[in-house]
Simulated assay, not measured.
Amino acid sequence: MEWAGRPNHIRGVPRKMVFMVAGGFAKLFASFLNSTSVQNAQTLIRLVRSRPPGVPLITVSNHMSTLDDPLMWGFKGFPSINADLARWVLAAEDICFNNSFYSYMFRLGKCIPITRGGGIYQEHMNEALARLNDGAWLHTFPEGKVLQEDAPIRRLKWGTASLIVRSPVTPMVLPIVHHGFEQVMPENFMFGRRPPVPLVNKKISITIGEPIEFDLPKMRQTAISLSHNFSLPLLGWPSTSGLDEAAQRCLYSAISEKIRTAMESLRTLGKKQKVLTPNCFQQ
Rank of each mutant, 00 (worst) to 15 (best):
Leu156Lys: 01
Ile112Lys: 02
Pro53Ser: 04
Phe189Lys: 12
Val38Lys: 00
Ile153Gln: 02
Ile176Phe: 02
Arg267Ala: 07
Ile153Ala: 01
Tyr252Val: 02
Arg154Phe: 11
Arg193Tyr: 12
Thr66Met: 15
Ile120Ala: 10
Thr277Met: 14
Val197Ala: 15
Asn188Tyr: 12
Asp215Tyr: 02
Thr240Tyr: 09
Phe189Leu: 12
Phe32Tyr: 14
Pro171Gly: 03
Leu232Thr: 15
Pro186Gln: 06
Ser37Val: 13
Leu276Pro: 05
Ala91Asn: 06
Phe75Met: 04
Lys145Ser: 13
Trp3His: 15
Ala26Arg: 01
Lys272Gly: 11
Gln221Val: 06
Thr261Asn: 14
Leu234Gly: 09
Asn188Met: 08
Asn99Ser: 07
Val146Pro: 01
Val275Asn: 10
Ile208Ala: 02
Glu143Ile: 00
Glu210Ala: 12
Leu138Gln: 09
Ile212Ala: 00
Tyr102Leu: 15
Leu90Thr: 06
Ile114Arg: 01
Val13Asn: 04
Arg87Ala: 12
Thr59Pro: 07
Cys250Thr: 05
Pro113Ile: 04
Trp88Phe: 04
Phe281Asp: 10
Ala41Trp: 10
Arg15Gln: 14
Pro53Trp: 09
Ser103Phe: 02
Val169Gly: 03
Asn126Trp: 11
Ser167Val: 00
Pro113Phe: 02
Lys202Asn: 10
Thr43Met: 06
Asn40Phe: 00
Ile212Leu: 00
Asn201Tyr: 14
Ser256Leu: 07
Asn34Cys: 07
Ala22Cys: 11
Thr170Ile: 12
Pro211Val: 05
Pro195Gly: 01
Glu182Cys: 02
Asn40Glu: 02
His63Asp: 03
Pro56His: 05
Lys218Thr: 15
Met190Thr: 15
Thr140Gly: 09
Met17Val: 15
Gly180Asp: 04
Arg166Trp: 02
Met263Phe: 03
Val275Met: 11
